[in-house]
Amino acid sequence: MKILGWLTVLMCGALLIFNVSEFPDMGDANSPANSKQNLSEYFLKKAYHDTKVPNVVTAVLADYRGYDTMYETAVIFSAGLACFFLLRIFRKKGPKSRFYRHTPTGVTLRIDEGGKLPEESDVFKRIDSIWIPHDNIVRITCRLVVPFIQIFALYVIAHGHYSPGGGFQGGVLLGASIILIAVSNNLRAGIQRMSEKGAALMGSAGVLIYAGTAALCLLLGSQFLNYNALAKLLHIKPVVARYNGILIVEIGVALAVMAVMVWIYYNLSSAGKHDEGL
């Protein structure tokens, strides 16, 4: 394999170096991709006029090339489905006896099959393969940080029209906040906050918001994804309808990305068993 690797790399390298002289210089504003008469110019000059969104990247992402972005959401959704489909193992029966620790006294209880299980609380903690003695510093720091991460995430989503940001970035941050809970406590703590079913359904809902908005435009008589059609429905100007349409799909994207990130984490970290993890 080593020889094959070197051979491929050498061939590729030769091919890549062969053409270097025609490659535009870095920062060249006159290369065909950046030059005046092309797309770059059109987007920069017209995007605000067309959509009332100053962040041109957002405007292009969710409006001009919104069709791509819809599939991008579908890609991440497929990845969630794929990880679930490949890894998830449903266990019909739990282990016969369970162990609990009474935290204030430090006593460990064994409850056999059929016995009454104590309610999960701060007082009784279930001990299983994932149980680790609590590290208060890590746990409390993370707990303190999580709300800030989430608020920042909402800001990133909502402010994507005006500053760098948008649905993907915000969605990833939201997902990261829940993953942080799962990492700092254990997987079950994460699942308590967002169940697997909840994550799966939210992922579907996110993609559905995007594709559904787009299909609604089609049903209202415009092209697929043409937010202008929403103007009639919302009684606003077409340009403002584009602005709002972008916001709606960004929220859909954020929802899908958050849910799928968490879902993928659950499946990957526990190899599909959902009862143990990092």
Partner: peptide, 13 residues
């Protein structure tokens, strides 16, 4: 020809 989001060829898809 079908223009997604109502944009002409090079701008939209």
């Amino acid at each position: 020809v079908y223009r997604f989001a109502g944009w002409e060829a090079p701008m939209g898809i």
